[in-house]
Structure formats: C-alpha cells, structure tokens
Design a protein around this nucleic acid. Sequence first.
DNA 1: TATTCTGGTTACCAATGGGTAACTACAAAT
DNA 2: ATTTGTAGTTACCCATTGGTAACCAGAATA
Lengths: 119, 119
Amino acid sequence: MRDDRFCNSNCPFTRAIGTIGNKWKPIIINVMGTRTMRFGQLDAIVPHISRKVLTEQLKELEEDGLLERLAYKELPPRVEYRLSEKGLAFLPILEHIKEWNLKYEVATIPKATDYKYAG
Amino acid sequence: MRDDRFCNSNCPFTRAIGTIGNKWKPIIINVMGTRTMRFGQLDAIVPHISRKVLTEQLKELEEDGLLERLAYKELPPRVEYRLSEKGLAFLPILEHIKEWNLKYEVATIPKATDYKYAG
DNA sequence: TATTCTGGTTACCAATGGGTAACTACAAAT
DNA sequence: ATTTGTAGTTACCCATTGGTAACCAGAATA
C-alpha cells in the first residue's frame, strides 16, 4: 500500500505522499499521539481496521521510521508501539488538518430522500 | 474512493481523512496550487494518473468544495479547474508535509541486489 | 484437561481500484 | 470526405486491497 512510483519520485512531497498517503496511516498516527500503545489497544481503538491491515500498516510505519516497536519476550507476547521523533513531528500537521476541516467543512444538508416520512 | 465510514465519523479529523485521505487528491491539489488549469494539462502533469481516475478525483474534489469547475460551452469543450478558498487553505498543509519529509526522510540505502554488476 | 491470553501469520474469498481502448459531440482545418 | 482536438463516459478486465476465520506458541488459570 505504499506506492513505489511515488516513493521513487524526485519530488519530496510526492515521496511523502507515497509513504503516508493513505487513509490508515494518518488515522493510526493520530490515535497514538504521544502514547505508548499495545497492539490490542490499537486494534480496539482504530475504527474499522482489521488486524491484518493494522499489522501491515504498523510494519510499514516502522520501516519508514515513523514509529518504534518494542517486543518483550514474554508469554503471552507483549508488544508496544510509540511514535518516533519523526512520527511525533507529524502530529502538528494532523492538527492542522483537523482545524482546516472544522473551518471549511460544509454541514451536510440531508436530502429529502433521507427522510422516510417527509412531513 | 471516499470512505463513507470515515466521512460519517463524529471526529472532524477522521472526516477529513475520509474525504482527502488518499494519494491522488493531495497530489492534484499540490499540482494545481494557485493556477487555473485545464483537464488536459492536469492529465499531462499529474504523474501516473489515468484520465478515468483523474475525472473521478476532480469530481469528488468539486463535490467536497475544494475546487471550482468552469465549463465553457464551446466545441471542442473547454473546462477549467481552480482551487476554491477551502482548497487554497489546504496548500500550507501540503507545504508542511514537504518540509517534514525533507527534514526526516532517511536517504535510501541501495541494496546490493540493486546493482546488476556489483564490483 | 481444557481454556484463556497476546500478537501475530496464513489461506481463502469478495470487493474495490485502476488501466486500456473505444466511443461521444461538433466545429474547424486539411 | 477525413482528420484533429477536448473532455469526458463506458465497458471490460486484471491486479490489488482488505475482510474473515482458523491457526500458532506456551505459560497461567480453572
């Protein structure tokens, strides 16, 4: 789900989009914030994600240096994730996106067909 | 390619990701910048995109209020696109992403297998 | 002895993404 | 009469994404 064509671009912006330009990664980074979280927690909190996809995304985020993974050799296993410096530096950008959305998002006007019994 | 589950979230950030959280839209917005552009121009400049996908993305961006579409009733047809106020307000965020990438991106270390004739 | 707990991995399947090529309209140019 | 040019739309098809469910280790618990 990385896009290699983008990741190999000579434009830094395009490369950035090639690595974090999907819906899951910003959501995961936003959920983590400054917290240290375990796999099961993320699975429970990130909306609509399956474990398979969560695993993939976490692996790529680690490979791209956005988060750190700490595996404890215990049984049952315990793994903790937390954002790296690079990942933490991305948080303000997500905050800007939130503010941008709040400022400009148009309130959805329900269509007539949304009412089962229009008065 | 909007994600309705995200668009209907009660979290403004999640909604934002639901609408602009894919790889094509940030790329398109970045390419347009403050320019007014025609369909054919975008098709030529946006890397790796097909006309079909470009059409879809432009339509969604217009529906979400990020850009304005001006169709001239001529033959052959002429259509111009430009970012709306909401779209323009997104540009600084893309600029931050670019700076973030420049600052933190790790230089790719070519693997040995990348060389056909390793010396 | 069977169950639980965690963080995955794997196989299988359905849904989606996205590419290509053909087609449209109509005027102007060749 | 045919080609060219624009901005799409449509049909068709393949590749990728992503979901579900089963399975794993191995200690602790019932």
